[in-house]
Design a protein around this nucleic acid. Sequence first.
DNA 1: CTGTTAGCGCTTTCAA
DNA 2: TTGAAAGCGCTAACAG
Lengths: 339, 339
Amino acid sequence: MVTIKDVAKASGVSPSTVSRVIANNSRISEETKKKVRKAMKELGYHPNINARNLVAKSTKAIGVIMPSSADKALQNPFFPEILRGIGSVIHDVEYSMSLSTGETEEEIFSEVQRMVYGSYVDGVILLYSRINDKVTNFLREQDFPFVIVGKPSDFESEITHVDNDNFRAGKEITNHLIEMGHKRIGFIGGSRDLFVTRDREDGYEAALQEAGIEECDSYKIHTEFLKAGGSEAVEHLLSLQTPPTGLVVSDDLISLGMLSMLEKYGVRVPQDVSMVSFNNVYLSEITRPALTTVDINIYELGAQSAKALIEKAINKLEPAKRIIIPHRIVYRDSVSKEG
Amino acid sequence: MVTIKDVAKASGVSPSTVSRVIANNSRISEETKKKVRKAMKELGYHPNINARNLVAKSTKAIGVIMPSSADKALQNPFFPEILRGIGSVIHDVEYSMSLSTGETEEEIFSEVQRMVYGSYVDGVILLYSRINDKVTNFLREQDFPFVIVGKPSDFESEITHVDNDNFRAGKEITNHLIEMGHKRIGFIGGSRDLFVTRDREDGYEAALQEAGIEECDSYKIHTEFLKAGGSEAVEHLLSLQTPPTGLVVSDDLISLGMLSMLEKYGVRVPQDVSMVSFNNVYLSEITRPALTTVDINIYELGAQSAKALIEKAINKLEPAKRIIIPHRIVYRDSVSKEG
DNA sequence: CTGTTAGCGCTTTCAA
DNA sequence: TTGAAAGCGCTAACAG
């Protein structure tokens, strides 16, 4: 390995001068800089990151924590896309990203512990948010820089988080259905433990309420990716005297499952029932029918969370506590006029 | 930050003794160990990874390089799943994974350079394989430990890679179609620049040949995720005098697009045309019809590549050059008897 | 503008 | 079985 000393020797200066050239210190003459840089190039010198980190007490790395990978939800294209967003900004600041994909809550926790105790990273992005989460609590206690993508379960005004306005999105997309003449509108969501689900559902309810439409509990289903249990719930929904004519589904992936199930029962979309959902992953373009969905700008969700974290961890600034990424409705073919 | 010195002071021994306790050196008395460990616990000591790495000349981290994220292909659930596989084994050996998601080839290359020059990682897993790839060449030149998931474009007998037997998989799944009575079988694949596509296609061809079925060039389409261009190709395929009755599709995601397109043209699956594909991502269960597909065991692909890399980088062993992950066909509803 | 010196936190000879 | 001392590669006062 070629070190700073080798470069120093080769260019006839002291190690500290070389160090200053690396840092592009302004008090070094252009001439020396040139000379040193030449030597660096010739020797193929590259700074050793560990040595640098040791003295700088920074790692130039951030940790990204995925939700429990026991869950099929991890296969949601949401994640690659958010990683892409994070990647874009950390690339610019020459940071690297350390990814944690634990199976269980315990595993995740132990990885986070390693990250912070071992000074592996300067900060952490949490790609999930759970009620009374061990990891979140730990990070808070340690006063370690972190941001959450989504809504924190507690200390919302204290923890920096990057989120959509899911309430408003839910309201708007439901309103679209209402504007199209729908009155009997159902909601299909993932687990109510997730704030995304709740917020979107609350928005849905608010829209109904404002439109003077009465809510109906049997119009609401909560299911994980429509496996076994989901099927029965849908069956029940369809067998109602007056089944809904419109469906608000909390995630494109769930929509995919719904589409499949509805076809099984001979229900056509959008002729028999209209359907809208959220995320606008590329899949929603190639379903039949293509989905009318809320584009939540996943990439930006990732990019902004990385930006906020960097502000916090590196620049020691205090970013806004709540950063909202704008959404927009993408109109496609899964909605038809009613009545 | 609490350091080894603090622990030493607190437990009345020297820093080197503490270090030995951390390494669980056998020449330290149990008594001292107990004493030191107690102090570590009380003080909340955790070794600083950078300091350790600096002397150990190892980083306990591996780099994982994604394909260009400019590509929609990144949204393939294949990736989260493979990361999960990698994560499982590196968690066990207490390694961490540094993820690189570059937009362009240049960006990816510069990130890899940083990783190896800066000693960020002990080894690298390449999640893609391209002909004449800058990154691969660089890694080879530097003699840096790396493994490829998929098939290397060159030096196949030299570069450790973890792959499926895509040729055989292609042949087997095509044979399934043949056994079901199909004679006119088409192939829909992604870019031919990818070895997966080629291998699967070669297997498809071999199956036809063995069955004495003549190949037909107009039965073959290559397309990226069936966007604009793909549509015309499919239209062409369907308008043939004798359109295929069976389709071998090289990726579940492309199948999803195909399904959508076929419906548009009023072609029913499997009644009018049968369809099989590859990967068995969870999506293939919830399409209509559910796909008969080759399960390539993505998780294992990830896990084994991590294992091989660790053998190489850490244990300095020479793993097998070609590690084949077994596949199996999952029979679902997208194939029907013909004739 | 540049060199000398000390030190980041840890491991590892060498000595005792 | 333990301690003292040197050094990993780099940065940052301090001094000139």
